[in-house]
Measured scan of single mutants.
Amino acid sequence: EFILQPIHNLLMGDTKEQRILNHVLQHAEPGNAQSVLEAIDTYCEQKEWAMNVGDKKGKIVDAVIQEHQPSVLLELGAYCGYSAVRMARLLSPGARLITIEINPDCAAITQRMVDFAGV
């Protein structure tokens, strides 16, 4: 995967993360976080594997957030924003999600994903 990915990106003209974002923009409903998550899950199941938590493990994350109702949540590494959208949609009003992503391209994609999801 890591050796072939740059070749695939070159042939496709963009990165996997950008392709995931484009899929979301084309297939998800703006302002609907659940729709965004479903679009990412569908893309990763049908098109390309991606390094995200996914729906199965995501339900565990959901349960922890719902049980503890944090007022501040810190995410280290956002990748394409799946977990940020997943967690933010469950936060109480006034709660904050702080996401740190070292890769500026992934940070920009995450910001667009979060904005599109409306969270």
Rank of each mutant, 00 (worst) to 15 (best):
I100F: 07
P30R: 06
F2C: 03
I3V: 09
V119L: 11
N32H: 15
L10M: 08
A108G: 10
I20F: 03
L97M: 14
M12I: 06
H27Y: 14
V24E: 02
Q111K: 11
C106R: 10
V114E: 13
M113T: 01
R19P: 15
L4P: 02
I7V: 00
E17D: 02
I3T: 02
T15A: 03
L11V: 13
K16R: 05
S35T: 14
V24L: 05
C106W: 02
I109F: 13
D14A: 06
Q18H: 01
N103H: 03
H23R: 02
I109V: 11
H23N: 03
T15P: 01
A107T: 03
Q34L: 14
D105A: 05
Q5E: 06
D14E: 07
M12R: 09
E1A: 00
H27P: 15
D115N: 14
M12V: 05
T15S: 08
E17V: 06
N103T: 12
N32K: 09
I20N: 05
A108D: 12
E1G: 05
V24M: 02
N32D: 12
G13S: 13
A28G: 12
I100L: 02
M113L: 08
A33V: 11
E29Q: 12
P6H: 07
L21R: 00
A28E: 15
I100S: 10
V114L: 14
I98M: 15
G31E: 04
A28V: 09
Q111E: 11
Q5K: 11
H8Y: 04
D105Y: 12
H23Y: 06
N32Y: 11
G31V: 14
Q34P: 15
V114M: 11
A107G: 09
G118V: 12
N22I: 02
I7M: 06
A107S: 10
V119A: 10
T15I: 02
P104L: 13
N32S: 00
D14H: 09
H27L: 15
E29A: 01
H23L: 01
L21Q: 08
M113I: 08
L97V: 15
E17G: 05
S35N: 02
H8L: 13
T99N: 15
Q5R: 00
A28T: 02
A33G: 06
I20T: 00
P6T: 12
T110A: 04
I98V: 10
E1D: 06
P6A: 15
R112L: 07
Q34E: 04
A107V: 13
G31A: 03
A33P: 15
M12L: 08
L25Q: 01
E101A: 13
E101Q: 05
A117D: 08
P104H: 14
I20L: 04
I100T: 09
E29D: 13
D115A: 08
A33T: 03
I98F: 12
R19S: 13
G31W: 08
D14Y: 09
E101D: 06
Q111L: 03
S35R: 15
I109S: 06
Q18L: 04
I3M: 01
D115E: 07
I102L: 10
Q5H: 02
K16E: 00
L10P: 00
L25V: 01
T99A: 07
V24G: 02
Q34H: 09
Q26P: 07
A107D: 12
I102N: 09
E1Q: 05
I102F: 15
I102M: 01
I7F: 01
A33S: 07
I102S: 06
I7T: 05
M113R: 08
L4R: 02
Q26H: 06
I3F: 02
S35G: 12
R112Q: 13
T110S: 09
K16T: 06
A117S: 08
L10Q: 01
G13V: 08
A108S: 11
D14G: 07
N22S: 00
T110P: 04
E101G: 14
L10V: 09
N103S: 10
P6L: 11
D115V: 06
F2S: 03
D105H: 13
F2L: 04
A117V: 15
F2V: 04
A28S: 13
C106S: 09
E1K: 14
N22Y: 00
G118S: 12
N9T: 01
E17A: 03
I100N: 10
A117P: 07
V119G: 15
P30S: 08
G118A: 12
E29K: 15
L11R: 04
H27R: 11
R19H: 12
D115G: 11
T110I: 06
M12K: 11
L11F: 01
L11I: 12
L25M: 01
L4Q: 00
Q34R: 15
G31R: 14
H23P: 02
Q18R: 01
H8D: 14
V119M: 11
D14N: 03
L4V: 05
I7S: 07
A33E: 00
S35C: 10
L97P: 08
H8Q: 13
E29V: 14
P104S: 14
H8N: 07
G118D: 11
H27N: 06
D105E: 10
L21P: 00
I3N: 04
P6S: 10
A108P: 08
A107P: 14
Q5P: 00
P104R: 09
A108V: 10
P6R: 03
H27Q: 12
N9Y: 02
A108T: 09
N9S: 04
M113K: 05
L21V: 08
V119E: 12
A117T: 10
N103I: 06
I102V: 04
F116Y: 12
Q26R: 00
L11H: 04
Q26L: 05
F116C: 09
N22K: 06
T110N: 09
I20M: 01
N32I: 13
L25P: 00
K16N: 02
I3S: 07
L21M: 10
I7N: 02
C106F: 09
D115H: 09
D105N: 14
R112W: 10
V114A: 06
E1V: 07
Q111R: 05
C106G: 13
G118C: 10
Q34K: 04
E101V: 15
E101K: 12
L10R: 00
F116L: 15
V24A: 00
M12T: 03
E29G: 03
H23Q: 05
R19G: 11
N9K: 08
A28P: 14
T99I: 14
Q18P: 10
R112G: 05
P104T: 13
I7L: 05
P30L: 03
H23D: 00
L25R: 00
I109N: 07
I102T: 08
R112P: 03
G13R: 12
G13A: 06
V114G: 14
N22T: 01
T99S: 09
T15N: 10
F2Y: 04
I20S: 01
G118R: 12
D105V: 13
P30H: 13
L97R: 06
N9H: 00
N103Y: 03
P30A: 07
A117G: 13
P104A: 03
I98L: 07
L4M: 07
I98N: 05
N32T: 00
L97Q: 07
S35I: 12
Q111P: 04
F116V: 04
H27D: 14
Q5L: 04
Q26K: 11
I100V: 05
Q18E: 08
C106Y: 01
Q26E: 11
N9I: 04
K16M: 03
I100M: 10
N103D: 03
E17K: 01
G13D: 13
G13C: 07
D115Y: 14
I98T: 07
F116I: 07
Q111H: 05
I109L: 11
P30T: 15
D14V: 15
T99P: 10
N103K: 14
E17Q: 09
N9D: 01
Q18K: 02
H8P: 02
R19C: 08
L11P: 08
F116S: 15
I109T: 11
N22D: 04
M113V: 05
F2I: 03
D105G: 10
H8R: 04
R19L: 11
I3L: 08
I109M: 11
